[in-house]
Amino acid sequence: MINKRVNSIQEALEGVQDGMTMMFGGFGLCGIPENCINELVTMGVKDLCCISNNAGVDDFGLGLLLQKRQIRKMIASYVGENAEFERQMLTGEMEVELVPQGTLAERCRSAQVGIPAFFTPAGYGTEIAQGKEVRNFNGKNYILEEAFKADFAFIKAWKGDHAGNLIFKGTARNFNPAMCGAATITVVEVEELVPAGSLDPNQIHIPGIFVQRIFQGKTYEKRIEQRTVRKRP
């Protein structure tokens, strides 16, 4: 067993520097690496380029990095829940690249699996396609999109073992699997870290080969963005 376990969050984030490009798993506030984000705030690293489907809310998730002006550029598909984000974008303090959600996921997955670029129909004929190569396959138009290059990927999984094998829960899976191994160093935080051999190999979603460092997160707030319920009859 190749041991991926690190003893502290400081060790997990060793090598993080100003100006780096970082991927963050999560959809909205669901399945985000809460502990890693908090530690990046504490470290105070800045000029970051962040790749994440969303940008958190004002006081949680990536919104915490925004508040401290640690993000130079944001690459995301939807950023609607964050007033500070909108302010920094409109004043030009922060650069923003909006990417269709499926293209964002595939640019991560391509980086993970060694595919430099791919053709997708998403965005053909729109401003997203500007400056991109267009090809027609079987009568339909596609644009060329490139794999991301990132220094760190920060992942949140439900369970993991010391070998770095991961299991996700519910829709907290989202962008996390495709970001594993899509950056030079993949750091995973889990709710429950167990010794190798404790997880059924049949149930593993992401094998440890895609993971460099794993640790158990201290606490999880797991904030709900839109609590929607039915009244009991």
Binding site: R223, T228, K231
Partner: peptide, 19 residues
């Protein structure tokens, strides 16, 4: 459907971020 009150799971949402 949406969960009954008290049965919301933060790890289970739709694309509108609703439980």
């Amino acid at each position: 459907p949406f969960p009954w009150e008290g049965e919301e799971d933060p790890d289970l949402i739709n694309a509108g971020k609703q439980t």
